[in-house]
């Protein structure tokens, strides 16, 4: 399965079909959102109701974890969910592959989650207080904290990549071995798996960010006491 075939080059950089698919998703989402939010009103129609429902549900999910920073985290987390759902389901379209079936893509998203955790932690608490929690409860645990940060980021990338790639691979193998219509149940499983994996990835990112911020809250409370 060749998923990183270079479509064309921009200078020394080879643009793969995965990147083109991602651009397509971005373009589609951008146009759709622009068209859907041009004429918003206080008395919503069906499309506005759908959009408000999606965003309200996302905001409510974030509020459960971080009640005071839901609006701040909403763009990042909700974009993760929306992009991952669409990217995961793109594999169902013939001749297209899910971008999330590529380790480069999931690694990039995991890197963004990793950076976001530290960004929000430092932004809200200061670098000193944020780095302090790596030394708590004892400096001896610093290596374990560092290893934890690295492994959970790698796990985040590999989990999503492995699940989506394996679904596509299994469907391809069943299609080759059994025939044209046999992989349909697997494709239905693909839909469920795509939704679940998107939710897991976004929720884990939210928990990681919230964990960083809340650990600092505890630290601050301890300092105040």
């Amino acid at each position: 399965m060749e998923t990183t075939a270079t479509a064309f080059y921009i200078g020394p950089f080879g643009i793969t079909s995965i990147v083109i698919t991602t651009w397509g998703i971005m373009l589609g989402l951008g146009v759709f959102c622009w068209l859907a939010t041009r004429n918003l009103s206080l008395e919503p129609g069906p499309m506005q109701t759908l959009l408000e429902g999606i965003i309200s549900a996302s905001e409510a999910a974030i509020q459960i974890v971080l009640p005071e920073h839901a609006r701040e985290l909403l763009p990042f987390i909700t974009t993760l969910w929306i992009y991952l759902v669409i990217a995961n389901l793109t594999g169902l379209i013939p001749l297209l592959h899910s971008p999330t079936g590529n380790l480069s893509v999931t690694a990039g998203l995991a890197l963004l989650v990793f950076l976001s955790v530290h960004w929000f932690g430092i932004y809200h608490n200061g670098i000193r207080h944020y780095l302090k929690h790596y030394l708590s409860p004892t400096p001896l645990l610093l290596p374990f904290h560092v290893i934890s940060e690295a492994t959970r980021t790698i796990a985040l990338a590999v989990r999503l990549f492995g699940n989506i790639m394996s679904l596509e691979l299994v469907a391809l193998l069943v299609l080759i071995v059994a025939g044209l219509l046999v992989p349909i149940p697997l494709l239905m499983l693909h839909i469920i798996e795509a939704l679940v994996q998107a939710y897991i990835f976004g929720m884990l990112a939210l928990i990681y960010v919230a964990g960083a911020m809340q650990s600092q809250y505890s630290k601050k409370e301890n300092d105040n006491e």
Partner: peptide, 27 residues
């Protein structure tokens, strides 16, 4: 399981742009 740095970098940039697009036109 191959890894492409160009795709990795572009994916990071693409996602940041997507965040901006959705924030601007949706959120």
């Amino acid at each position: 399981m191959d890894f492409d740095w160009t795709t990795f970098t572009l994916e990071v940039i693409n996602f940041l742009i997507l965040i901006w697009i959705l924030k601007r036109f949706l959120y």
